[in-house]
Amino acid sequence: MSGPRTGGGDSSPVTVFSTCTVDTVGPDVATCTLNLLRRLGFDARLVRGATCCGQPAWNSGFGTEARRVARRTVKALTRTEGPIIVPSGSCATMIVHHWAELFSGDRLARSAAAVADRTEELSQFLDRRGLADSLPERTGDTASTTVHDSCHGLRGLGIKGESRRLLAAIGTPVTECGTAERCCGFGGTFSVKMPAVSAAMADEKLDDMVASGVSRVVGGDLSCLMQLEGRARRRGLDLEFRHLAEVLDGADPDQAATEGDRR
């Protein structure tokens, strides 16, 4: 691994909204996102006091409950500075596209709109600012990698080439699977309301990944990765699942942990 290059950030402030999924099942995705942004020269801070964007309840048809939770997050994010970077296409879509309706008529409507205007998904943020070239290039990483395009990032935010360009910049070629754009079957509460259908959806992608000979699956949404990894483990498949932030952070897991702790 070559040494980290800095640049682009100019010590400008950015805020990372870690999301409830990251906080619950993969806090190191937040660590890696912060590490990455700091190495790129940003004054990256994790938002304090935010909880969830409200999506689990919103997509289940429970608007009041979704708003109750999301209000906490709006208030917390309103107090922050700079672009709000979300390591999840799904949560970013909720904020960018659905908060207007969620907060329609609410006294926090304007704050929510202001937060939505500042919100970007991680790969979108990096790609828009041309930061791919400032990422640490890695050598010796030979894992055959494919990308899973999470539905909301892909169709809600139009994210597709971003992750490929970023991975190419760090020297990780991507093997495309034919099912890259097909839903993994997570779908929030869908995964537990219709578990058999959900697993069948995951299976079709996993079969395609195995047939394509890839060993590592990179995605921008931890929830999709949790679904795919959970099913792959049940089936005993030899596949590794990593969030894009972890891969771009460029450190092996243990080293990332050390850096995170040292900060």
């Binding site: 099942v25 993969g26 806090p27 190191d28 995705v29 578990p195 058999a196 959900s198 697993a199 995951a202 990765l225 949790m226 679904q227 990894e229 959970g230 099913r231 483990r233 049940r234 699942f241 897991p253 243990d254 942990a257």
Partner: peptide
């Protein structure tokens, strides 16, 4: 759990 493991995400 009927169809999936809870990913240990050991490194995490």
């Amino acid at each position: 759990r009927e169809f999936r493991e809870i990913p240990p995400m050991g490194r995490r």
